[in-house]
């Protein structure tokens, strides 16, 4: 019983971080219908920038490094939208074109990271050490902390989307772009905003997971693939769907890893995805349309 509970807790804490990566991917898709294949590379970028500031370069405390990395990530998001997405929008086959272009961007970021930092893996020391034991269940303080931070981030995003003027505008754009235009919403500005938020979220996840999963130039593909499965299962474009799906899949993963083995985690996810899509082709809460 304790063991099952421990696996469950491990899954739930992991789910919260997956959620941060997936929600960012889903946010951009929801608003602009663009699937950003560079999302994982931007996750790595966040990890590398923080690692450089903390462990390699000036040796800053982690909180200060995060504070410095945040605006860089936000500007990166705005820059990507402005420089490579916007010119393609409205062109023929723009959905496929933007996928190809963001895939290209992923390669550029990865190779850029390899060029600057070298191909090896890096790590950032966890900001808290030690473990917490309650009733026979043990969890590291670090896992608990990133769980709380991740939930806070996702909660803040939900609050932003539901209760602020710009958040309402993001939802409006994702539900009806022309309608948004009609009420005076500057749609391009909202696309820029969603890209900024999305890159910030995935970059922070990259920093939070650096002590657990390490940072490497190609290390973003794993989280991207996971985020992608989560987002499709939850329903493309639905942040609520991404939230629910992240926890379902993370708990599933924890049990599969414990009882069958780590290499079965992804097959189990894909099996789950196929089953859900057979029953609900749009995913759990999808806005996808043809």
């Amino acid at each position: 019983m304790t063991q099952i509970l421990e696996i469950l807790i491990s899954g739930i804490t992991q789910g919260a971080v997956y959620c941060v990566v997936a929600v960012g991917l889903s946010l951009v898709y929801g608003a602009s219908r663009i699937l950003n294949f560079a999302h994982g590379s931007l996750y790595s970028l966040g990890g590398f920038l923080a690692w450089y500031l903390v462990a390699d370069g000036p040796g800053l405390p982690l909180w200060l490094a995060v504070l410095l990395v945040l605006p860089v990530l936000a500007l990166t998001g705005i820059g990507i939208e402005r420089a490579i997405i916007r010119p393609l929008r409205g062109s023929e086959n723009w959905k496929i074109n933007t996928i190809m272009v963001t895939l290209g961007l992923a390669f550029i970021i990865e190779n850029g990271l390899q060029l600057v930092f070298g191909p090896g893996t890096r790590t950032i020391a966890p900001f808290v050490e030690g473990t917490l034991s309650v009733g026979g269940i043990t969890i590291t303080w670090y896992k608990l902390s990133i769980f709380v931070i991740s939930l806070a981030l996702v909660g803040a995003l939900e609050f932003f989307l539901s209760s602020t003027r710009y958040g309402q505008a993001v939802r409006a754009v994702s539900q009806d772009m022309q309608g948004a235009n009609q009420v005076g919403i500057n749609v391009n500005q909202i696309f820029g905003l969603t890209f900024a938020l999305s890159v910030v979220l995935t970059g922070i996840a990259g920093i939070l997971l650096a002590p657990v999963f390490l940072v490497s130039p190609l290390g973003g593909w794993g989280p991207f693939l996971k985020a992608f499965v989560i987002v499709v299962l939850g329903g493309l474009g639905s942040t609520k769907g991404a939230f629910v799906a992240a926890f379902i899949l993370a708990v599933l993963e924890a049990f599969v890893i414990f009882y069958i083995g780590p290499s079965w985690a992804m097959p189990a996810w894909l099996l789950m995805l196929i089953i859900v899509l057979m029953i609900r082709p749009k995913g759990l809460f999808g806005v996808w349309e043809n």
Binding site: Q168, D176, G184, I185
Partner: peptide, 28 residues
């Protein structure tokens, strides 16, 4: 201000949210 023939409402938002989005710009 344009009112569309196909309504162009935000389907997953409430009536009130839709109306308030009409007043999105500072002047309104």
């Amino acid at each position: 201000v344009y009112v569309a023939e196909d309504r162009r409402l935000f389907p997953d938002m409430t009536v009130l949210e839709n109306l308030l989005l009409g007043a999105y710009l500072p002047a309104a």
